[in-house]
């Protein structure tokens, strides 16, 4: 085709900046909810209050990050609730009761989370179990372990943990700094070779294998990392509440899945990311905060979250359909 046949207006059209509508919609949603919450609660416009609100969100943010990792490789992790509970109870019982080197023991809790995640990875990547079935089983098993460690709410969390969570770094509440560290860690992972392999496995496992990606190893490591993130979530809740609870993890399973879907990570794998899920998780927390501020019945908050989920899923499906329609 010669340039002479191209209409003049097309030849003169400047390249339009590419907008990622997935990120734009999630950001817009979060910004809208922040504005609504601030207008309802002017007292929230204070760095300490924001820090407290973020602190309540931390457990969900980390579990949402864990779930995102599993979904990115076209999987799912129901055991995040169990890993969360084990880490939470370990922190409240073993770490809290031990004198002295709490940091080392907290590290041991993280290793336990990594190990529980790795067990999922072995079941799924090594033995070929369906992620749903494998993690359904380990969720129950890990939940039982949590009940064995701590039969009911209680225990004592080391002071060092609560002090860190309630502290500040250069005047900024630690909870906000922790979120920044999470996002930075994700950024590093995302841009690393391993990050590329995660997306490759989730996008097209066969093609990734042909390209030399160690698919099984990537999957195993992803589930191990998911376990680590869920364990951090459990530790965060222990720090925020100064106590442990053997049943604390279960509500986070579905909430983390909601955050993943609302954020825009594709359940078909290979698209999305932890940053989006973090924004969506904040949105869910803000909906709940707005409902509290307006003194709405609890069902309103639940219904609003469900409505949001439906709206976002529908909107994304429409965008995807439109994008597919454009593909020649």
């Amino acid at each position: 085709m010669s340039t002479a046949t191209v209409p003049v207006e097309r030849r003169l059209r400047l390249p339009r900046p590419r907008i990622d509508w997935g990120i734009a919609v999630t950001t817009l949603l979060l910004a809208t909810l922040v504005v609504v919450d601030l207008s309802l609660q002017p007292a929230l416009a204070d760095i300490t209050q924001i820090g407290l609100l973020v602190q309540t969100a931390l457990p969900l943010l980390f579990v949402a990050a864990a779930q995102t990792l599993a979904v990115l490789v076209r999987g799912i992790d129901l055991s995040v609730g169990g890993v969360f509970a084990v880490a939470n109870t370990m922190t409240a019982v073993w770490v809290g009761a031990a004198g002295g080197n709490h940091q080392l023991l907290l590290l041991a809790v993280l290793v336990a989370g990594l190990a529980m995640g790795a067990i999922n990875g072995v079941l799924i990547a090594g033995l070929g179990f369906q992620p749903f079935i494998a993690t359904l089983g380990t969720w129950t098993a890990y939940g039982g372990v949590a009940l064995m460690i701590l039969p009911s709410d209680g225990g004592a969390v080391p002071l060092v943990l609560t002090s860190i969570l309630n502290g500040t770094v250069a005047g900024i509440p630690a909870s906000i700094v922790i979120v920044a560290v999470l996002l930075l860690a994700w950024r590093v992972l995302r841009t690393s070779r391993f990050g590329t392999q995660i997306y490759a496995v989730g996008d097209d496992e066969e093609r990734a294998r042909l390209n030399g990606t160690p698919v099984r190893r990537v999957r195993l490591l992803v589930y191990a990392l998911a376990g680590l993130c869920a364990a951090v979530g459990g530790i965060m809740l222990a720090g925020a509440t100064s106590t442990g609870s053997p049943t604390a993890g279960d509500p986070y399973i579905l909430m983390s899945l909601s955050a993943v879907v609302i954020g825009g990570t594709s359940l078909r794998g290979g698209a999305g990311g932890v940053g989006l899920s973090v924004m969506a998780a904040f949105s869910l927390i803000l909906i709940s905060d707005i409902a509290s501020a307006m003194n709405l019945d609890v069902w309103v908050s639940v219904a609003a979250s469900a409505l949001l989920l439906l709206v976002m899923v529908t909107a994304r499906a429409l965008v995807e359909r439109r994008a597919e329609g454009r593909t020649p």
Binding site: V25, L28, A31, T32, L33, M294, N295, A304, A315, R322
Partner: peptide
């Protein structure tokens, strides 16, 4: 999705939340 579409979406969510306040709280 256009910018207008995205704005409408956000407005719909905010609107749903605002509307839901009609059945609001309990003050006895």
């Amino acid at each position: 999705m256009s910018v207008r579409g995205a704005t409408l979406l956000a407005a719909a969510v905010a609107g749903a939340l605002t509307l839901s306040s009609c059945g609001s709280g309990d003050d006895s």
